[in-house]
Amino acid sequence: MGAEQVRAFWRELGLPGLIDVHTHFMPENVLAKVWAYFDSAGPLVGREWAITYREGEAERLALLREFGVRAFTAMVYPHKPGMADWLNDWAAAFADRTPDCLRTATFFPEPGADRYVARAVTSGARVFKAHLQVGGYDPTDPLLDDVWGLLAEAGTPVVTHCGSGPAPGEHTGPGPIGAVLARHPRLRLVVAHLGAPEYAEFLTLAEAHPEVHLDTTMAFTDFTETAAPFPRELLPRLAALQERVLLGSDYPNIPYPYRHALESLARLDLGDPWLRAVCHDNAARLFGL
C-alpha cells in the first residue's frame, strides 16, 4: 500500500481524505537532533528505531498530500525552559505558509508560560502539544495551572504524551494528567498513543471525561504490539468511544510505512463507521474542518 493504496483506503470508506492530528514538523536543526536521538536509541526510545521518512521538509509535505492527508499538525515540544515561545513563533510561520497544517503551539512550566500561551491562542493556534515524557515535567506544576485553565476555557485541544511508553517518565501515567483533569474538567485533552502502555487506565479517563479524546499514534502496529500490545478485551470499550478517537501517525518519525498505521486500524475489524469516524470525521468536527 503505497500512496495510491493509501488514497484507495480512504476512498473506499467514502471519505474526502485523512486528517492526521499527530505529525511532526519542526525547525530543521531541532528535527535533526530528534532524529539523532532516535538513531542512537536513546533512553526514552530504548530500542532500534529507523526513521522511514527522512526527507527534506518540502518532500515530507508533498508525500503527506500525495497520501491524501487534507489536514495535519506541526507537533513541536520543548525539553527545557526558553524553547517554547520561539518554537511557537516557528510553528505559526510554518502554518502561515502551509495552509493545510493546523496552527500548532506548545508550552513548558516556566514563568510567562501563561502569557505566551494566551498570545498563541489569540493569534490563532488550533492545537497544542504537551510532551510529559520528553519535557520531564509535572503537569500539575503551579506554573501551568493558568495555562491549563486558559486552554480549557478556549476549548483548544492539547495533544499530550502522558502515557509511559516507550519508556516511563517521572510524571507519565494516568495519575498526574488525571489530577489536571480533576482541576480542569473542560480541558480538551487528546491522549497520544492511546496512552500506551496504560491503555485501560486512559480508556477509563476518557469514559469519565467527555472532553477527553485518544489518538491512535503508533497503536496496533507490529512495532508497538511487540512491546506494548493492546489487550483485545479492551476493543469493545474503544469501539464505544468511536466519536472520540482520532487518527495520529507520528509521521515522519515512524519505523514503518505510513500505510501500515491504516492497515493496523483496519485489521481491528471495528467496522467502516468506526474507521470513517477515526480517520476523518471526528477531527473534522473537533477542528471545524
Score class of each variant (00 low, 15 high):
residue 126 R to V: 02
residue 22 H to I: 05
residue 27 P to S: 00
residue 22 H to C: 12
residue 216 T to V: 03
residue 220 F to P: 10
residue 98 T to R: 05
residue 109 P to D: 01
residue 124 G to Y: 04
residue 44 L to Q: 12
residue 239 A to Y: 02
residue 84 A to W: 12
residue 26 M to L: 15
residue 254 I to K: 11
residue 96 D to T: 14
residue 40 S to F: 05
residue 164 S to A: 14
residue 99 P to N: 08
residue 142 P to I: 04
residue 269 D to K: 08
residue 144 L to T: 12
residue 51 I to A: 10
residue 245 V to C: 09
residue 175 G to E: 14
residue 158 V to H: 05
residue 94 F to I: 00
residue 239 A to G: 14
residue 199 Y to A: 13
residue 243 E to N: 12
residue 219 A to T: 14
residue 205 L to Q: 11
residue 57 E to W: 04
residue 214 L to W: 02
residue 152 A to P: 06
residue 246 L to F: 01
residue 269 D to H: 12
residue 150 L to I: 11
residue 250 D to C: 09
residue 65 R to Q: 15
residue 257 P to F: 09
residue 285 R to L: 08
residue 177 I to M: 04
residue 200 A to D: 14
residue 21 V to Q: 14
residue 44 L to T: 13
residue 165 G to K: 05
residue 148 W to I: 00
residue 154 A to I: 02
residue 244 R to A: 03
residue 8 A to L: 08
residue 34 V to C: 06
residue 256 Y to D: 12
residue 22 H to T: 13
residue 192 A to R: 10
residue 76 V to H: 07
residue 251 Y to W: 08
residue 232 R to C: 04
residue 277 A to W: 01
residue 149 G to N: 03
residue 86 W to I: 08
residue 5 Q to V: 04
residue 33 K to V: 10
residue 246 L to T: 01
residue 280 H to D: 05
residue 83 M to H: 11
residue 154 A to H: 03
residue 198 E to D: 10
residue 269 D to G: 11
residue 260 H to W: 04
residue 97 R to D: 04
residue 284 A to F: 02
residue 65 R to V: 09
residue 52 T to M: 13
residue 2 G to Y: 10
residue 213 H to K: 07
residue 217 T to R: 07
residue 259 R to Y: 09
residue 180 V to C: 06
residue 120 A to V: 00
residue 51 I to T: 15
residue 3 A to M: 04
residue 226 T to E: 15
residue 211 E to A: 14
residue 47 R to E: 15
residue 123 S to P: 08
residue 202 F to N: 05
residue 258 Y to V: 01
residue 134 V to Y: 10
